[in-house]
Amino acid sequence: MNRYLKLVHLEVHRFRYALFSLMFLTAAIQITGLVHTTQVRVKGWREAARLGEHSTRNFSFADVIGDLQFLFAIPILISIVVLGLYVFLIWYRDWIGRDKFAYRLFTLPTVRRNVYMAKATAIFVFVFAMVSFQLLMLLLERQLFNWMVPSEYRMSSLFAEAVASNLVFVRFLLPLDGIQFVVYYGIGILAVFVLFTAVLLERSYRLPGIVYAILYVAVCGAAIGGAVYLNLYNYFYPREITAIRFCIYLMVMGFTLTLGFRLVSKKITV
C-alpha cells in the first residue's frame, strides 16, 4: 500500500502544474464573465429604476449563471479535453524521450498492477479535484455576486438553482440527481480503465495491438452503450433494468481490470 501511494503521489506531482493551470483558467474566465455580466445587469437595473421600472428588473445569482452558458462551458470543456488526452499521455509519456521513464517505472520493487492502479487513481484525483474546485468557485462567485449587487436589486436563489441554470453543469459536471451523478461518473471511471487496457494492448503487441485496442474499445463501448440505451421497459421492471445494467458494468469492469493487470504484469516489456 505504501508503494502504491508513492506511485499515486508521483503521478499527481508530474501533472500538478497542468492541473493548477486548468484551475487558474477556470477561475479567470468565470470570474471575468461574472463581474462583467453583473455590472451590466446592475447598470440596467439602475437605469430601469430611474425610469420607475425597477420592480420588474430584480435578478438572482442563478440568472447570471444562466447568462454565462458559453463562458462557463469554455474552461470546463477545455479541462475535459485535457484530462481526456492525459488518459493516454499518462502512459505514453513514460516511453517518450531519450531516457525512457518506463524502464525505471516497471523495474520498481512493487507489483506492476500498482502502476496501473496508481495511474488510474491519479486521473480520478484530477477529475474530482476539478469538480471540487468548480463547486468552490461557485460558492466564491455567489459571495462576489452578493457583494457587487445591492440587496434591493437582487432576488435570493438556492445553490442548486444556480447549478440547474447552466446546462454545462447539469449535463457534464454536476448532475443534480444522485443516481444520475453516480451513473455518469461510474461510466467515466469504467471508460478510463477501458482506455488504459487499450493502451496496454497497443504497447504489448505494437502494430497488431492497435487493431486489438480498437476492437476492444468498440466491444466495451457497445456493451456499455447497450446497457444505457437498450429499451427493456417492455420486459422488465425499472429496478430489474437497473440491476441488469449494473451487472453489465461490473462484467466489463472485471474483465477490463483482469486483462489490464495481466498485460501490465506479463506482456509489457521495457
Rank of each mutant, 00 (worst) to 15 (best):
R3E: 06
L5K: 06
E11P: 02
E11S: 04
R16I: 08
S21W: 12
L22V: 09
Q39W: 01
E47N: 03
A49D: 08
D63R: 11
D63K: 08
I74E: 02
I80D: 06
I80L: 07
G84Q: 03
L85I: 02
V87M: 12
F88Y: 08
W95N: 12
R98G: 03
L105F: 09
T107G: 12
Y116N: 03
T121S: 13
S132H: 03
S132K: 07
L135S: 02
M137E: 07
L138K: 00
L138C: 03
L138A: 00
L138W: 03
L140E: 02
N146Q: 09
N146V: 05
W147R: 02
S151I: 03
F159R: 01
A164R: 12
N166Y: 06
F181E: 07
L190S: 12
A191H: 15
A191G: 14
F193P: 09
V211E: 04
I214N: 06
A223C: 06
N231Y: 02
L232H: 02
F236T: 01
I241S: 02
T242Q: 04
F246R: 01
C247A: 14
Y249M: 14
Y249R: 08
G254I: 14
V264K: 14
S265W: 08
S265E: 15
K267T: 01
K267M: 10
